[in-house]
């Protein structure tokens, strides 16, 4: 019953939003769904396996550039979607393995710093790999990327279903929604599997886990690669949606924001992570409105909204860890862990 109501709500939401608030707000919904996907991916790494990845956006970038380069006039390649998305996921996972192999056998915090570094390095490469051979087109980025297309259906154009007009942003909404629902089902299955149990055990006590026969390094690597492939997949969707990618989209701030979503919502709990992602992707829009409010009330913008946004994210991370480390909607085991 409740499920039915939720399904109807999700179905009509984009149309209602579009009618009431316009395309812009449906776009915000699209991005919210994309962030949910990213947060669910990072949740496998941070929430399930207890590994801190501070450069998650790097995998997002790898997926996005993979799509951009294989489906744009830049190299004049135009791969189909069914090949593009797996390619991005696979490439991102390979980067994850490359990065995780040397670090995951060591103390957990090395991974944090290495991923932090990787997140920056990947941007340096994207920015500079335009000379002498132009691979990434440097700071200008890659544009005119092929829109997402499922068989004969391009999601990059308006469709008509009976008398109903379906704008592009609504097409995208439904594609991303399917992606998110799929990711939720897969996350749940992983969590309650032999592998998910092994991750939880490693998070609880690595030495005891190893003594029970768990190959801890490989299992952590698996979690890391799984998370990376989620990131790569989302990156592909992002590129196809935007039609344009540039290094500027993949900053440390994005990584921090995704981490913030996972932490705020509740590490390890799917509902919490979804809530966190939706809240934090819609909140900045509210803050943007706050910028206008400052203008109206105080005559000038005292605090730059984007600045304020990051400041609040940073504060949220600190305060959540100090006051409510299990997040808004905690996972059962996490709550005990953090208050035990």
């Amino acid at each position: 019953m409740l499920l039915g109501a939720a399904a109807v709500l999700l179905l009509v939401l984009p149309f209602v939003t579009d009618a009431a608030l316009g395309h812009g707000w449906v776009r915000i919904l699209d991005f919210a769904l994309l962030y949910v996907l990213l947060a669910l991916g990072l949740n496998i790494v941070v929430g399930y396996a207890g590994l801190l990845d501070l450069g998650y956006v790097a995998f997002f970038a790898v997926g996005a550039y993979c799509y951009a380069l294989l489906a744009s006039p830049h190299f004049d390649l135009h791969w189909p979607l069914w090949a593009l998305l797996p390619a991005g996921a696979l490439l991102a996972a390979s980067f994850g393995v490359l990065l995780g192999t040397p670090t995951l056998g060591l103390r957990g915090d090395y991974l944090a710093i290495v991923t932090l570094g990787f997140g920056e390095i990947i941007r340096i490469f994207l920015n500079n790999l335009n000379t002498p051979v132009n691979i990434t087109n440097g700071p200008q980025g890659v544009s005119l990327i092929d829109p997402l297309r499922i068989g004969p259906w391009s999601l990059g154009q308006v469709h008509h279903l009976g008398g109903l007009e379906i704008p592009i942003v609504v097409n995208i909404y439904f594609l991303f929604l399917v992606g998110v629902l799929l990711a939720i089902v897969l996350s749940r299955r992983l969590e309650h599997s032999r592998i998910g149990r092994a991750w939880a055990a490693i998070r609880e006590d690595e030495v005891a886990a190893a003594s029970m026969g768990l190959h801890t390094r490989n299992l952590k690597l698996l979690a890391f690669a799984m998370g990376a492939s989620f990131g790569g997949l989302s990156g592909g969707l992002f590129a196809g949606f935007q039609g344009f990618v540039s290094p500027e989209s993949f900053t440390l701030q994005e990584s921090v924001m995704i981490l913030c979503m996972v932490v705020l919502g509740g590490m390890g709990n799917i509902a919490g992570v979804v809530l966190g992602a939706v809240l934090l992707s819609v909140l900045p829009e509210a803050l943007r409105a706050a910028g206008g409010l400052q203008q109206d009330l105080l005559g000038r913008v005292w605090v730059d909204p984007s600045n304020l946004r990051l400041l609040l994210f940073g504060l949220a991370l600190v305060l959540m860890m100090l006051l409510r480390p299990e997040g808004l909607l905690p996972a059962r085991a996490r709550q005990r862990e953090l208050h035990g």
Binding site: R197, E204, D205, A208, R336
Partner: peptide
Amino acid sequence: QNIRLFANM
């Protein structure tokens, strides 16, 4: 010696 269960599972 000092019990090491997966305490929260």
